[in-house]
């Protein structure tokens, strides 16, 4: 597909899903309430409840899709995903600690802030482990080590938890959701996701060049060290912020680039923005499914994403095996 029609189609899809997400709820509320027109109660519900949910779904999806495409382009591997470098695992650990210690109950942004601090710490640790000039393999290994450590510490927190209510909270939080988020959450996550996206979108040229391998890319004038640093910081900001407000939502970063790659003629740079838009659409759609399928059971977004994503992932493995 040519880039302009593709961008237009994806934008239209995201806007339609945003409108659907804002319109869906217990009471029918006209969209114009978003702009403050009409019944004050409608305006309140629309602006304070539905808007954060819809906007966060779109932002979280965009962050995951974009960083997934960047990570796959950098590692030249269609099975890479943003969680690979341990940012989401570490953010989850921060959130769990906030829940476990009761800090999360103290003030409303304690949990996302704690998650962000841990995501930042993870990137620092990975930079330290992988070194300034390390190749992509050391980056993967450092990411696996950090993820494993974060996972182990989350298990430890659950293991030692003496408060069943906190355990319950942790388990539910880790399933990932954008329900009942406030404008404060949106205000915290949006700038960081925008910053991360801006950084990641600058890597397009380098990722295109990397199609030819690290040596050829370097000889084409790409600084691999700077590319890697931009990628790490961009992913940390975008995915760290997304995880901090929405919990662990898997498969988006893996599946969206895979679905859109044929439409982008496999070009890594074009796949970046396409996956950002595609990710937004996918999470918005999944969040709608969450509310439509079992409206009164508080189905979690991460669960639905995994149920949708895993079969797609199996399909990807099947196609890779056939060498397509």
């Amino acid at each position: 597909m040519r880039p302009l029609p593709l961008a237009a189609a994806l934008c239209a899809l995201v806007l339609a899903l945003l409108a659907a997400s804002l319109s869906l709820g217990y009471a029918p509320i006209p969209l114009r309430a978003l702009l403050g027109a009409g019944d004050p109660l409608h305006v309140m519900v629309m602006q304070q409840i539905r808007l954060p949910r819809a906007a966060l779904a779109a932002l979280v999806g965009a962050a995951l899709g974009l960083s997934g495409a960047a990570m796959q382009g950098y590692l030249r591997n269609p099975l890479a995903e943003p969680g690979l470098i341990g940012v989401s695992g570490s953010a989850a650990l921060g959130a769990v600690i906030a829940l476990q210690t009761g800090l999360a109950a103290a003030f409303s942004l304690a949990l996302p802030l704690m998650a962000l601090v841990f995501a930042g710490g993870a990137v620092g640790l990975i930079l330290l482990l992988a070194g300034p000039r390390g190749g992509s393999l050391t980056l993967i290994l450092a990411g696996i080590a950090v993820s494993a450590l974060a996972g182990a510490l989350v298990s430890l927190a659950l293991n030692l938890s003496s408060n069943p209510y906190a355990t319950f909270e942790i388990v539910f939080w880790m399933m990932g959701s954008v329900a009942d988020r406030s404008l404060e959450h949106l205000a915290l996550a949006a700038p960081l996701i925008a910053l991360g996206a801006a950084l990641l979108l600058t890597t397009g040229r380098g990722l295109d060049a990397l199609t030819l391998g690290e040596d050829a890319a370097q000889a084409l004038g790409v600084s691999l060290g700077r590319l890697r640093l931009t990628l790490l910081l961009g992913t940390a900001a975008a995915v760290g912020a997304a995880t901090a407000v929405a919990g662990a939502v898997g498969f988006v970063g893996l599946v969206v680039p895979h679905l859109l790659r044929p439409l982008c003629k496999a070009r890594p740079a074009r796949l970046l923005w396409a996956s950002g838009l595609g990710g937004a659409a996918m999470v918005l759609a999944a969040d709608l499914a969450v509310r439509l399928v079992l409206p009164d059971r508080d189905l979690k977004l991460g669960v639905v994403m995994a149920i949708l994503g895993a079969p797609l992932f199996l399909h990807l493995i099947y196609r890779t095996r056939r060498g397509v």
């Binding site: 040229r205 295109d208 199609t211 030819l212 050829a216 000889a219």
Partner: peptide, 26 residues
Amino acid sequence: AAWLPQAREIAWGLDVETLVTLGRLP
């Protein structure tokens, strides 16, 4: 200077024209 490494890496299924256009990156 253009560099043609011995390892013939093509990571993604780009079409040939797009692949050759990568030479214009600098």
